[in-house]
Design a protein around this nucleic acid. Structure first.
Length: 114
DNA sequence: GTTTTGACGGTCT
DNA sequence: TAGACCGCCAAAA
C-alpha cells in the first residue's frame, strides 16, 4: 500500500479500501486522514469522478446519496449500491448503521499518513 | 489577488 | 426536536 502525498490521493486510497457492500461517510474519512473537514473529502471525490474508485460507497452522515447528482446518471449510484446488496429507498441507505464502515476502526491512520 | 462555492459535520439557538 | 450558522481547505472564476 503506497503512501499518497496529496490529500485527494489519500481519499482515493481509503475509498478503494472500502469493502464491497459497505459504505462510509465523509466525516469518517476526514477524521481518518485528519483533513479537518469533510468538505475536502467530497471535493476530492468530485474531482475523482472520472476515476475507477468506488466513490458510490461514500455518502454523507445521514446515509443519503448526496453525490448522486454528480454521477453521469443519478440512478447509477443507487443501482451500484443496490447491486452490492444494499437497500436504497428515496436516495437513502436503509440500515445505514449496519453497513457503515469506518476506516479508523479497521485501518491504521499512520499507514495512510506520511 | 480576492471572492464564491463545494459529494459535509458539528454545535449553537 | 428542528432549523440555522460556522468552520475546514482547496480550486475555479
Amino acid at each position: 500500500m503506497p503512501q499518497p502525498n496529496t490529500y485527494f490521493q489519500r481519499v482515493y486510497s481509503v475509498t478503494e479500501a472500502i469493502p464491497l457492500g459497505r459504505v462510509t461517510n465523509y466525516g469518517a474519512i476526514a477524521d481518518f486522514l485528519a483533513l479537518g473537514s469533510a468538505r475536502m473529502v467530497g471535493w476530492a471525490l468530485n474531482k475523482c469522478g472520472h476515476l475507477s474508485i468506488p466513490a458510490h460507497r461514500v455518502v454523507n452522515r445521514k446515509g443519503e446519496l448526496s453525490g448522486r447528482n454528480m454521477f453521469p446518471t443519478p440512478f447509477l449510484m443507487q443501482e451500484m449500491l443496490e447491486n452490492e446488496g444494499l437497500t436504497i429507498i428515496n436516495n437513502k441507505i436503509m440500515d445505514f448503521e449496519a453497513v457503515l464502515w469506518i476506516p479508523v476502526d479497521h485501518l491504521d491512520p499512520q499507514d495512510y499518513n506520511e
